[in-house]
């Protein structure tokens, strides 16, 4: 019983220690962001690695999700003779929810795990230490550009995901199942509101980008410098990001809906 309590206490303490380290890490990262104003090239390179290289998986996934939405939406709507509103169903589902959430989950798997592994490996091979000994702050040189790139890339990737998804729904609904093309687009135009839908989707994806990037760079930086430590850091990045994104999505949806 005592040993169980001890273990519970030890677990609790290590969780709080880790949270404390993560927040101190975040503060120092935010403080280091200013240095990117006179070194935009660092940010651009990371935007390419985090954003552009994630584009393919995002576009392909967006297309399939949109096509599935087109199918499922049509099957349900046709029962009520309301298949003309398919465009708004697909667009609202993507812009409000699926775009930001699925993009964040894919981002965690593609870019987040890569960030954690890259930084963890730099730590293991003493590249971060050598940088420090050369009087180069790894927070400014390594962490801040990757963190900001993640935040900036996420809404752009989510927008690309939703746009391709809308076309996927169009191909299935209009091209395959015979929904009127004009109705598809006009219903979408009439029902999707910029502030209520598009903006809320953008806010969500910025928040998800912040959290996903924070988790990835912290897990890499805090990794135990062994191969097992890097493996754990990449796994933790994907698991923690998925949980955080889904929980935050619930909270943000509640806040936006009540507002």
């Amino acid at each position: 019983m005592v040993s169980l309590l001890q273990r519970l206490g030890h677990f609790g303490l290590s969780v709080f220690q880790s949270l404390g380290r993560a927040h101190l890490f975040l503060l120092r990262t935010l403080w280091s962001l200013g240095s990117l104003t006179w070194r935009p090239r660092l940010l651009i390179r990371e935007l390419y690695s985090v954003g552009v290289l994630s584009l393919l998986i995002i576009l392909v996934s967006g297309l399939f999700v949109g096509m599935v939405l087109g199918y499922q939406g049509y099957i349900t709507l046709v029962n009520f003779g309301a298949e003309e509103v398919l465009g708004s169903v697909v667009a609202l589902s993507l812009v409000r929810e699926l775009g930001p959430v699925v993009t964040a989950l894919l981002f965690a798997g593609r870019a987040g795990s890569a960030l954690a592994a890259e930084i963890g490996l730099m730590k293991t091979t003493e590249q971060l230490s050598s940088m420090e000994m050369m009087a180069v702050d790894p927070y400014k040189r390594v962490i801040a550009p990757r963190f900001l790139a993640g935040i900036l890339a996420m809404p752009l990737l989510a927008a690309a995901f939703s746009a391709v998804g809308v076309w996927g729904g169009y191909f299935i609904g209009v091209g395959l199942l015979g929904v009127d093309g004009g109705s598809y687009w006009s219903q979408m135009q009439a029902s999707v509101d910029f502030y209520d839908d598009v903006l809320s989707g953008i806010i969500k994806s910025i928040v998800f980008g912040f959290v996903a990037s924070w988790i990835a760079v912290f897990q890499g930086y805090d990794a135990t410098p062994t191969s097992e430590g890097i493996s754990r850091a990449t796994t933790n990045t994907v698991v923690y990001t998925a949980l955080a994104v889904l929980a935050l999505d619930f909270i943000l949806t509640g806040l936006m809906f009540s507002a």
Binding site: T125, E126, Q127, S129, M133, M134, A135
Partner: peptide, 16 residues
């Protein structure tokens, strides 16, 4: 001060 110190790490620690 570190700008005036050089350090050679055991692994070399080159940027890969």
């Amino acid at each position: 001060l570190r700008k005036r110190m050089g350090m050679l790490f055991q692994s070399g620690a080159l940027f890969t």
